[in-house]
Design a binder for these strands. Structure first.
Lengths: 188, 188
DNA sequence: TACATATTGGAGCGTCCACTCCAGTTTTGC
DNA sequence: GCAAAACTGGAGTGGACGCTCCAATATGTA
């Protein structure tokens, strides 16, 4: 889309504005007008660079979600605890993008296009957790490790929802109970 | 609101229409016009009986969610397995209201009014699960049982989201792993 | 420099939607 | 049977919002 330098810069300004709005007023507050006002750009410029409003929103959320990974390089050195810790930090941290992420997932329940994107990032995460499980306990079968990873992530997601709705909820304690040391997600 | 017989009947027609629409076209498809058309009622009649569109939607979802309970009387005879089973059935069953429920929860992440309603029903459910845990293992402290209940529900919610987005996902198997026989949610 | 192409702002279009208003009708209690 | 109050339909209001269109301008290339 953007081919000239100015275009690329405008694109960045738009993404920054979207990011800021998502954080400050939530997903409902992100209207096209809000974005273009914040970015000091006309609607025409916006559509010269993005196909739709959601395009910009997805881009911002995708970046934020990827940043959750404590080991983006995927070097395979992060422990289960690291992963859980990073997830908890994401949910309880100051960035309100966590809310947005779960809300998008909620929308994915009826919008197939969104579901595909959410599932894709979910699967990536399951892989990371599966690897960590096997590193923790090399005797685990691939299948078993994957089931534990899936269950663990599900629990983390559910705990995340509760903590986002109920600020008094102690997510970290509950989440730590999921670690193998606590014998919580160990299989049959 | 409704004081006369006709009013109560109209109210029921409106709720039935809303229920049907939620099932057939999802939460986005439920517009006031859709409801009033389906119920064969004027907008004025609607607002004579409900304060807002969301009022009717909440009422329908609340009824559906309460119906999940295998033992509505709360006689305290349902086992953990019964509860988990009922939850899985709700999520994987034919009623699309499960989607709506999770979507509303998603909205609750930014809408305080919704969060309050969602948390209220969440807490009720945690109580039921806590009781069941204590029935299963009477040596459990209240606190421990409650933590296990919270974790279990979180995992079920997360698994529910995955299964709603990915029809190929085997929720039942994963959910059953959470039962004490499978040593999954047992504490430290 | 000259030209093709990218970029720009923003007025305005089309649509959708929750909700109000109200005059007329029906129901109910007495 | 009568009055008060509830109920009714639906036209109309006000506003939000995503996106298009386009003339004017800036940018990069040869």
């Amino acid at each position: 889309m953007a081919r000239y330098r100015v275009g690329l810069e405008t694109r960045e300004r738009i993404l920054a504005a979207t990011r800021r709005l998502l954080s400050e007023v939530g997903i409902e507050g992100v209207t096209l007008k809000a974005i273009t006002d914040q970015a000091k750009v006309g609607a025409g410029s916006f559509y010269n660079l993005f196909d739709s409003k959601d395009d910009a929103v997805f881009e911002v959320v995708r970046e934020a979600v990827e940043a959750v990974d404590p080991d983006p390089a995927g070097a395979g050195t992060d422990s289960l605890e690291d992963l859980v810790d990073a997830f908890v930090a994401f949910m309880t941290g100051s960035s309100p993008i966590a809310r947005i992420y779960l809300q998008l997932a909620g929308r994915g329940l009826t919008d197939t296009g969104i579901a595909v994107r959410v599932l894709r990032s979910h699967r990536r995460r399951v892989e990371r957790f599966t690897d960590a499980w096997q590193r923790e306990d090399p005797t685990l079968s691939e299948r078993e490790a994957q089931q534990r990873a899936e269950t663990m992530l599900a629990a983390l997601t559910g705990l995340g929802m509760t903590t986002l709705m109920d600020p008094g909820f102690d997510m970290r304690t509950h989440a730590m109970r999921l670690l193998p040391d606590s014998a919580l997600v160990r299989g049959a």
